[in-house]
Amino acid sequence: MVLPLRPRPEHHPQQQTPLWPERFRQLAGAVEDSRLRAFYQGGVVSADTPLGEVPFVALDLETTGLNPRKHDIVSVGLVPFDLQRIRCRDARHWILKPRRPLAKESVVIHGITHSEVRQAPDLLGVLEPLLESLAGRIVVVHYRHIERGFLDAVLKRRMGEGIEFPVVDTMELEARLHRVRPLGIWARLMGKKPVSIRLADSRTRYGLPYYQAHHALTDALATAELLQAQIAHRFSPDTPIEALWL
């Protein structure tokens, strides 16, 4: 008897991935904020668009902590790319003034200090250029719950309206390979550890260089490179975007 794979809903895009082009049209008509409306009006590629034709933007946020409901964003880095090239020329990086205190522990991680954020703008001050950079592109992140969760939560807090968009999650793509099923008891007894799907470890598996982590722009670049590598090894430029996005 063949045992079915244990269903893991978050790894089955079909089950919860909205029909994104349709969803964007709805949202464009529903939102109050003009910047959000412009973003949704930018639209989204259709589900059957081959990866080779998809415009992407890699996005990374550094935050004061891990909980979108309690913590805030300290910096945003993004870099647009496609399957051929990552374009640093159009990369953006902002340091922001969080509305929640900058905890010592997080300063250690992202290296952004109190004096730097004191001069920095609030997220709303850069929302327009930020959304312009994202509009019309598929956002690529490593671990979607941070980027998507935080942007949605902090916008809701500030303007009463959140944000939704499709993402390609490079961590989830690694999980599809290495987290298909949990390690069996035998493997665990043998001292086997699950394969790490963190950004740096995943990059190493594709022969990508080591980059210093936790700088939003560098992490965005690192994520873009990782997606290019994942597609080069496991997909093809003809694979439709719906096989990847969530």
Partner: peptide, 14 residues
């Protein structure tokens, strides 16, 4: 120079 760099990944044999 660094700001204008473009990056591309090539699988072995490509």
């Amino acid at each position: 120079v660094a700001c204008h760099v473009e990056v591309g990944y090539y699988r072995a044999g490509k």
